[in-house]
């Protein structure tokens, strides 16, 4: 009898705390994303665009390099040319599909390399502090004297045209801002109590950076670099448009805009098509980046 009352009085563990599920940070982010249909939709479109560029050889109805003097500048829907032909009679649809390969590479790869280099430099500058910080950050400040487009144009103008030089100039343009973001985030985290506690328990510098710094700095850096992808695509096609990036006859959205511009009085609609590809890609990347930012709750 007495046993039973004791048992009844003693509340079960589950009643005290009604099953409170504690989610980790990344689980919370995933949970928020799952109900953000806008971001999910545009993320899906981004994946579609990337896949269509990868599988361009399978999807493209024609050879993007095959020119034909008879079929120059034909309108949309002419014979088998779904989106018409360009000034050398090449199929626009195939060239846009193939062009995505170069345009997307030039948009994503420089940002990726700059994230690695800039992020590392920023973390070193923020963590070590003192004179190292001074040296790295003042060198980065030099690049802040130029608007990004001007800097990209100036560097690739000095290096000369070509895909490789174009990507190199874009990488150089994106390192300083990424470095600054990483530096700010790192020096904020560095002085927090839990880093001090980790040091007191004897954690090595490397493991402090790996576990505590990186875990807190990676979010802001990734958000920032995801927002740079659309900027990079825009500047890369801009460079090609000026004749400083991709060289003919390679298909690239910016270069296509440039060469089709001369046909503006003959086939106005066709001339605008490659730009639509740039616009859609850039909008999707921007919206996905915005969605990620609010899901990861990063303020910048």
């Amino acid at each position: 009898m007495s046993d039973a009352t004791v048992n009844n009085l003693q509340p079960k563990a589950s009643e005290v705390a009604p099953a409170l599920k504690v989610r980790s940070y990344w689980q919370t982010v995933g949970y928020r994303l799952r109900y953000d249909y806008m971001t999910l939709f545009f993320g899906f479109v981004v994946i579609l665009i990337i896949l269509s560029a990868i599988f361009a050889p399978l999807l493209a109805p024609m050879d993007p390099y095959q020119s034909s003097m008879l079929n120059r500048l034909k309108p949309i829907g002419y014979k088998d040319f779904i989106l018409g032909t360009d000034e050398l009679g090449r199929d626009i649809l195939s060239r846009i599909l193939y062009g995505g390969r170069i345009s997307l590479t030039m948009g994503i790869l420089p940002v990726f390399i700059a994230t690695v280099i800039g992020g590392l430099l920023g973390i070193i500058a923020g963590f070590v502090g003192g004179r190292t910080n001074m040296t790295i950050m003042r060198i980065m400040d030099v690049f802040y004297a130029f608007p990004s487009i001007l800097l990209a144009v100036a560097i690739s103008g000095a290096l000369g045209g070509g895909i490789f030089n174009g990507m190199m100039s874009l990488t150089l343009v994106f390192i300083p801002p990424l470095c600054r973001v990483a530096e700010t985030a790192t020096s904020q985290v560095r002085n927090l109590d839990f880093v001090e506690a980790a040091r007191a328990t004897g954690a090595s510098t490397f493991s402090i950076i790996r576990v505590h710094i990186l875990g807190n700095v990676l979010g802001p850096i990734l958000i920032y670099s995801s927002s740079l992808v659309s900027v990079s695509i825009l500047i890369a096609s801009g460079l090609s448009f000026l004749g400083l990036g991709v060289t003919p006859p390679e298909p690239d959205w910016g270069l296509m805009l440039n060469t089709l511009r001369q046909a503006i009085y003959i086939q106005p609609v066709i001339c605008a098509l490659p730009g639509v590809a740039i616009l859609v890609t850039s909008i999707c990347f921007n919206l996905v980046s915005d969605g990620l930012r609010s899901a990861m709750d990063v303020r910048m």
Partner: peptide
């Protein structure tokens, strides 16, 4: 922000 202004 996303529109390529040379295209516009």
């Amino acid at each position: 922000v996303s529109i390529p202004n040379y295209w516009l």
